[in-house]
Amino acid sequence: MSCVVTGGGRGVGRAVVERLLGAGDAVVVVEHDPDAVAWLAAHPAADRLAAVVGDAGDEQVAARAADLAEETGALTGWVNNAAVFRDASLHADPVGEVLDLIGRNLRPAVVGAATAVRRYLAAGTGGAIVNVSSHQARRPVPGCLPYATAKAAVEGLTRSLAVEYGPRGIRTNTVALGSIATERHAAFMAGQEPAAAEWIDAELTRLHPVGRIGRPEEVAEAVAYLLSPAAGFVNGVTLPVDGGRSVFGPDPEAR
């Protein structure tokens, strides 16, 4: 079996790749940054790994990834994880820039889903798609309008795909993430003054009812489940993988 993981070179994406490799799958990683896939060549499972460097929102890049995946086995899973973490505000930035950022986060999911659906239908085998969203799709934080809007659209896309292609043997689900301890998070924290970093860490602990932020490996387990036959009756779901952040309501008497 083979899978494609976009944005699979670092963070959550790499954890998903490692989890799928551990299950014996072949994986094609799509990454925009060549440095993000430098580790593939020395990996113990390098014979089951391939990389495509390019924009996950480019149909030709997605087609190349699908081709490589099908060379190693039946394409059974597609994970739309690639994202752009940059924002703009409606009051200060051109509307065109805001729309461009929304599109840069939404387009890779649409292109990936379209590529996967067409390949699954052509093969007649069905398959699974997992989109990666965020708690911000339903509960945005200030200053992240383009990202939150795009992720809300990704969750709508998931439901539409589930209804449209479920009867054809194609399941589509989403994981909606809380804060995760990725390299990007570590770099953000390293750039803070010690007092600010301590406050941010305390706030993130407070916001996640399990008392900590998540690990990439925990997200990978959820994604692997949704891709697997064990989730054969799970379709159109947005699964929060957020330690309870999306259901947390602050106690008004706590202060």
Rank of each mutant, 00 (worst) to 15 (best):
A123M: 01
R184Q: 15
V141R: 13
A153T: 10
M189F: 14
L106H: 01
A116M: 11
A197H: 10
P140F: 13
A122M: 11
Y147T: 01
E198K: 08
V132P: 07
G143F: 13
T76R: 15
E164L: 13
R86P: 01
A176N: 12
G143I: 14
N131D: 10
V79I: 06
I200G: 01
V130M: 04
T158Q: 05
E198A: 15
P194S: 11
W199G: 02
L90Q: 05
A114D: 09
G126L: 05
G77C: 06
P167R: 06
G143C: 05
E164N: 10
H135K: 09
G96T: 09
R184D: 13
S133W: 02
A152V: 13
R206A: 15
L161G: 07
H135V: 15
R139T: 14
I129P: 03
Q192K: 11
A152E: 09
R118L: 03
G124F: 03
G143V: 11
E164F: 03
V130I: 03
A113D: 08
A153N: 04
A202N: 11
L157A: 03
A82N: 04
G169M: 04
P140E: 09
S179C: 04
F188P: 08
R107D: 11
A83I: 03
G112P: 06
T158W: 04
I129D: 05
Q192M: 14
R206H: 14
A88G: 06
N105D: 07
Y165T: 02
D100A: 13
D201V: 12
L99W: 08
V98G: 10
H135Y: 13
L121Q: 12
A83M: 00
G143D: 10
T149H: 02
S89E: 09
G143Y: 08
G191C: 06
A83D: 02
V84W: 00
Y120G: 06
S134N: 06
R107C: 04
T205F: 08
A82T: 10
R171I: 07
N105W: 03
P146Q: 07
T115C: 15
A122T: 12
V79P: 02
A186C: 11
A150P: 00
G126V: 11
H185W: 15
N105G: 12
A187K: 14
I102L: 12
A88K: 06
A109F: 00
R159C: 02
K151D: 01
L121Y: 03
S89K: 09
E203R: 15
N173W: 09
P146W: 00
H91E: 13
N131H: 12
R138Y: 07
Y165N: 01
H185A: 09
L99V: 14
Y147S: 00
V154A: 04
I180A: 04
L121G: 00
A92E: 14
R171N: 03
V98R: 02
A116R: 08
V141E: 05
R171V: 06
A109D: 02
A150N: 06
Y120T: 12
A181I: 05
S134T: 14
